[in-house]
């Protein structure tokens, strides 16, 4: 048992514990949306820890790379699945027993993504594509690298990806990332707490409309994703023009408190993507 195996084994054990929490929550939480909370928050971090832990324990950097790749993908997609399934459940009329419901009188208006002026070539995206290719092959030989460059070139020139350039602020983004990771940890502890204290009467759900300050859909999407990893909240709907986020809250106390929490995150997101802060 060398130190790497010990570290990897610890991560695997932690990830397994989270996976069990997710399964327990999905089985025992009282309503469809509360079950979604457990699945979204715990399952993705669980698999992430198992994947990265397995790579470390096996001493294989290729496997760690795949773990990081899958983790990134999961953290982008899990809130989207939660949002889509949650909204579908709501529209199907399966969400009952809400203490507060702002979504009932919501006027649906589609999100308008800022139009791209031209299909821009982005060097950052090019490098990211090559990196994903190399990670998938788990091999940094000259052949794989050339193949990756070829595929990325074809994607860049053949694909008409509507591209808008965003200005990132490195310090803002890293601050947001630190906050994000802290939220993910907190929300998993919260799910663990909910599972450990199964008193269903305490769960009083609500859906709160949160008007966003920003005009940028990129900031709104960043906030919508992060909200799904905030303890006890899940993004259900996002309408454009003006941007309003509809958040499902597991323990509804007051509208103001939810709005204050979202506003705090929004300010961080606006600092990470500063181009659009000044309306």
């Amino acid at each position: 048992m060398n130190p790497l195996q010990l570290l990897g084994g610890t991560l695997i054990a932690l990830g397994t514990a989270l996976s069990v929490l997710a399964a327990w929550g999905v089985l025992n939480f009282p309503s469809a949306l509360s079950r979604m909370h457990a699945a979204t928050k715990s399952a993705s971090l669980g698999l992430a820890l198992i994947g990265i832990g397995a790579g470390i324990a096996a001493g294989s950097w290729g496997l760690v790379g795949i773990g990081v790749l899958v983790t990134t993908f999961l953290f982008i997609t899990a809130p989207i699945s939660g949002h889509l399934v949650g909204r579908a459940t709501y529209l199907a009329g399966r969400v009952t027993d809400l203490q507060h419901d702002d979504l009932a009188d919501c006027v649906p208006s589609p999100l308008r993504i800022e139009a791209a002026d031209t299909a821009r070539k982005s060097p950052l995206r090019f490098i990211a594509l090559v990196a994903v290719w190399v990670l998938l092959w788990r091999d940094l030989s000259i052949g794989v690298l050339l193949g990756g460059v070829l595929v990325a070139l074809i994607t860049e020139f053949a694909g008409r990806v509507p591209q808008r350039t965003y200005t990132f602020s490195a310090s803002g983004l890293s601050l947001f990332l630190v906050r994000y990771i802290w939220l993910v940890v907190q929300s998993n502890l919260r799910v663990a707490w909910e599972v450990a204290t199964p008193s269903n009467e305490q769960i009083s759900e609500g859906i709160v409309a949160v008007p966003l300050e920003t005009r940028s859909t990129a900031v709104a999407l960043l906030v919508a994703n992060a909200i799904s990893y905030t303890p006890g909240t899940l993004t259900i709907e996002l309408t454009g023009d003006p941007l309003v986020l509809y958040v499902h809250v597991l323990h509804f106390e007051s509208v103001e408190q939810v709005r204050a929490d979202v506003a705090k995150l929004e300010r961080l997101a606006m600092r990470a993507l500063p181009e659009f802060t000044g309306v």
Binding site: V26, A43, I50, A54, L63
Partner: peptide, 20 residues
């Protein structure tokens, strides 16, 4: 669908553990 999604993720966890 949420439950089946979770089963798939648990399966992936088992596969990663096998690789370890």
């Amino acid at each position: 669908i949420v439950a089946v999604d979770l089963v798939l993720l648990l399966l992936a966890g088992g596969v990663a553990a096998h690789a370890a």
